[in-house]
Design a protein around this nucleic acid. Structure first.
Lengths: 199, 199
DNA sequence: ACGTTACGTGGCACTCGGTGCCACCGCAAG
DNA sequence: CTTGCGGTGGCACCGAGTGCCACGTAACGT
C-alpha cells in the first residue's frame, strides 16, 4: 500500500496513502453511518493512518467529500481563458458550467452520493459556501474581462452569483428527482437564467 | 438589569438577559477583537451569565450576529401572502427584497458592521447558508403559488436561488464600496436579473 | 559506505464549540 | 408553607482542529 509520489522533484518520499483513497474510504463511512456519526478517528483508523495525519491530507472533516475540486476549478479557469473572444459571453459560460459538471457514466452514481451528502448534511452545506467562492471567482473573472469591467464591480460578481445559483438549483432538483439527468436539469436551470425575469 | 418577559402567560419568570442585549454585547466583542479570537466564555462573562446559559439563547456562536432574522423572514412571508394576485410576480418579489433590506437610518451603521462580519468571517459565511434556506423557501413558496407549480419544481426553486444571489451580490458590493447606498445597489442587482442573460 | 538532511508520520497535550445531566433558586399557585 | 415550574449555571464529556516534537526512512553529498 506504499505509493510513490515524486511530483515535487527533489526530496520525494513515499506516502502511505493518497488523497483519493482517503476520500473514498471516508465517504463510504459517511454514507453508511452518517456524517455526524462518523468521527475523524474512525476514518483515520479505517485508512490505517493516525488522526494527526488525516489533517495533513484534509484541512477539515468537511473538506473530505470535495476531492480535487480546486483542480477542476483551475481547469475551468484555463478552459475559459482559451475561449476566443468571438464566442458570445453567456453561451460560453453556459457551456463552461455544463462541462464542469460533466462526469463519465461510471462515476455518476458516486457523484450523486457525494452531492447528496454535500447538499443535505448541514455542516457540509454550510462549508460548501467557502469552496464555491473560488468557482464564482473564475466566472466573475471571465465575465469581467469580457465586459471590460473590473472584477470588483457589480455585474461580473452578479454573474458569478447567478451561475452558482443555477448550478445549486439544478443539483437540488437533480437529487430531489431520482429519475432526472444532471445535465438536462442543469440545461433547464441555465435556460431560466436566459429568460427575462420581468413582469 | 433584570427584565420581565411575561409573554408566555402562565409561569412567567424573570430573565437575566434578552437576546438583543446578548447579541449586542457579543457583536461588540467580535468587532473589537475578531470573531475567532472571541470565545463564548468571554461573551458570557461580559454579559454576566454562565457559558451554559449562552447556548440557551443561541444555538451556536455563529447564530449570535443574526438577531431576529427568522422573525423578519416570517414577516416577509406574511407580507407576500397579502399581495393581491393582480400585482406582477417579479415586481412583487423585487419589492419584497427591497423591503426586507430596508433599515431605519439609525440602524444602518450597526447593520453594516453586522453584515461585514457575516460576509467576511469564514465561519459566519459558511453558517449563513443555513440561515438563508428559510428565506429562499419563502420566495420559492410565493413563486410556486403564483406560477401554479409545486414548490419542489425547478422554476420556483431557481427563483429563490436567483433572488438570493442578487441579494448577496448586492451586499458584497455595498460592503466593498463604503460610499454606496444599500438600497441602490440592491436595486441595481435586481435590475440585472431582469435583463436577459443571453448572447 | 556513512553521515546528513529533508520529509511524511503520528503521538500527546491543549483549546474551543457544543451537549447532557443535574442541582439550585425564585416565583407563582394551591 | 408546600409544591411545581422554569431559568440558571456548574460539571463532565465529546469531537474537531492545532502546535509541538520525536521517530523512521528515503534521497543526497562526500
Amino acid at each position: 500500500m506504499v505509493t510513490m509520489t515524486g511530483q515535487t522533484g527533489a526530496h520525494a518520499t513515499r506516502r502511505a496513502t493518497t488523497v483519493a483513497q482517503l476520500s473514498h474510504i471516508g465517504l463510504q463511512l459517511f454514507i453508511e453511518n452518517g456524517f455526524d456519526e462518523t468521527t475523524v478517528d474512525e476514518i483515520a483508523a479505517a485508512a490505517g493512518i493516525g488522526r494527526r495525519t488525516f489533517f495533513r491530507y484534509f484541512a477539515s472533516k468537511n473538506d473530505l467529500p470535495w476531492g480535487d475540486f480546486d483542480e477542476l476549478v483551475e481547469r475551468m479557469r484555463a478552459d475559459l481563458a482559451a475561449v476566443p473572444d468571438s464566442e458570445p459571453l453567456y453561451a460560453t459560460l453556459t457551456r463552461a458550467v455544463l462541462d464542469f459538471n460533466t462526469y463519465p457514466a461510471s462515476e455518476l452514481q458516486y457523484h450523486r452520493e457525494r452531492m447528496q451528502l454535500l447538499m443535505t448534511v448541514p455542516s457540509l452545506v454550510a462549508h460548501s459556501t467557502l469552496r464555491y467562492e473560488s468557482w464564482r471567482e473564475v466566472i466573475a473573472e471571465f465575465a469581467a474581462r469580457r465586459l471590460g469591467e473590473p472584477v470588483g464591480s457589480l455585474r461580473p460578481r452578479m454573474i458569478g452569483w447567478v451561475y452558482l445559483a443555477a448550478s445549486l438549483g439544478a443539483y437540488e432538483q437533480w437529487l430531489h428527482d431520482p429519475g432526472s439527468e444532471l445535465l438536462e436539469v442543469l440545461r433547464s436551470a441555465l435556460d431560466i437564467l436566459s429568460e427575462r425575469l420581468t413582469a
